[in-house]
Amino acid sequence: MSISVPALMGQLLIGLINGSFYALLSLGLAVIFGLLNIINFTHGAQYMLGAFVAWFLLNKAGLGYWWALLLVPIVLAAFGVLIERLMLKHLYKLDHLYGLLLTFGLALVLEGIFTHQFGSAGLPYNMPEKLTGGYNLGFMFLPTYRAWVIVASLVICLGTWFVIERTKLGSYLRAATENPSLVQAFGVNVPRMITLTYGFGVALAGLAGVFAAPIYQVSPQMGSSLIIVVFAVVVIGGMGSIMGSILTGFGLGIIEGLTKYFYPEASSTVIFVIMAIVLMVRPQGLFGQR
């Protein structure tokens, strides 16, 4: 079979874009799971919320994309802090199942509210002017906004990895993930750390929502359709591994893109097939510890 370079590159680019979202979202899930031991099923809804807050900022307050990049993570972090303080913190001593039920229920409530208010058709969000257009690379056309999303998510992912794996603050986080009561016995305010970590994870989801707003429609279901794939990514990468979630996120995005080119019929299932294989061969995930 003959290979059409522009079509292949086009699919690779879509794969990289999807991979950016997988990586950003699974990174947030990994950070939250590491410290809180809670699988944050609200993550998709929080991503959707991020896109909606960006839309509100633009349409109700006249604040554009760049403001959204700054304000949405702050708003979503505050929302996360509130959820953790009011609800999640009562669940740490209970079975994992309760955290799952609560966060899943919250996701349904949030999506329900937004579907009721805005319907499911989706709202348009215009690309910021500076990021419209694109580059002709000769073998393909690269839209500026997509390049921006890929680079920005890479920077955020690697920055988060750096902070967690290479800094003093990160060493508290890693230690508290292993043995929170001992870290507390050393005088570290671990409950506050847990609250802020959840806030940070939710802010990442919100930020991904802002990135997504100009590409996809801002719609109440945008999170739930994405998050299923993201959970598969997390299972493949191994729960709780930071670098694992970044590499698997981008890697699976690319694999998905390639599948779209070479065997489009399988493109929507390839990630789940890989998940099934990984679960059989290495149940802890590619980068998981146990």
Partner: peptide, 20 residues
Amino acid sequence: PTYRIAHLGVGYCPEERGIF
């Protein structure tokens, strides 16, 4: 709370050592 007690000048070496 535990983290405040540490700040009163207590250092703790647990039985299981607790190396990370």
